[in-house]
Design a protein around this nucleic acid. Structure first.
Length: 202
DNA sequence: AAAATAAACAACCGCCGTCAG
DNA sequence: CCTGACGGCGGTTGTTTATTT
């Protein structure tokens, strides 16, 4: 059965049922921010109606979580974060939400976009994973629940000792699955460490 | 300097798992 | 116990912005 996704049937000609779509306006943002400031977040469908927004609860949730939330950080992906994203992706694949939990302030959408636009293209392999799925299987199996938060503790500063930091990163990685990682040379060749994506110094 | 192309970003869509009625 | 609704997730697309020719 169709579980009421984000689909908004516009068959109804009633005005009260029209749902706004597309980019959020500043007014909508302010309404959402203000409402959440007073009532808190959650119960998104009810929130959307109560706040008077002609948006779906999903849309409100997405906007809040990915953009409006005060603790969200956008842009300026640091080299540390780049490495963490690459490593966690190598470990877990496209589990963006899971990866995002290890990057405070970053959302799954941000990481997903970053990966696709900045990292994926540099991978020559047609496969999402460089090697067989053997390590993938038991990695997922072994990392079922306990996720210690904040991954920044494993990598504190990026320097010539990147490889050392990488190996020192705490995780269930077997040493034999080193093919999942990029070497420091690879990172430089990707020019990922050259800039953080903000300022282009020519 | 303008046009074309590529890259980055924001948002939507459909599916899935969970929970309440 | 069954059905429907909601929140969350990952994939994908459309639009905007930057870079190159």
């Amino acid at each position: 059965m169709d579980k009421k996704g984000g689909s908004s049937s516009s068959s109804s000609s009633s005005q009260d049922t029209e749902v706004r779509k597309g980019p959020w306006t500043m007014e909508e943002d302010l309404i959402l921010i203000n409402y959440i400031a007073n009532h808190g977040e959650g119960v998104w469908n009810t929130l959307a109606r109560s706040a008077g927004l002609k948006r779906t609860g999903k849309s409100c949730r997405l906007r809040w979580l990915n953009y409006l939330r005060p603790d969200v950080r956008r842009g300026n992906i640091t080299p540390e974060e780049q490495l963490l994203i690459m490593e966690l992706h190598a470990r877990w694949g496209n589990r963006w939400s899971k990866i995002a939990k290890h990057l405070p302030g970053r959302t799954d959408n941000e990481i997903k976009n970053y990966w696709r636009t900045r990292i994926q293209k540099y991978i020559k392999e047609p496969e999402p994973f460089p090697r067989q799925n053997s390590e993938l299987n038991h990695s997922i199996a072994s990392t079922s629940n306990h996720i210690h938060e904040v991954g920044s503790e494993g990598i504190e500063s990026y320097s010539p000792s990147y490889a050392a930091n990488l190996e020192a990163f705490p995780g269930p990685l077997p040493t034999e699955s080193n093919d999942n990682f990029w070497s420091i040379e690879d990172l430089w060749s990707m020019q990922l460490l050259n800039n953080d994506g903000t300022n282009k110094i020519v």
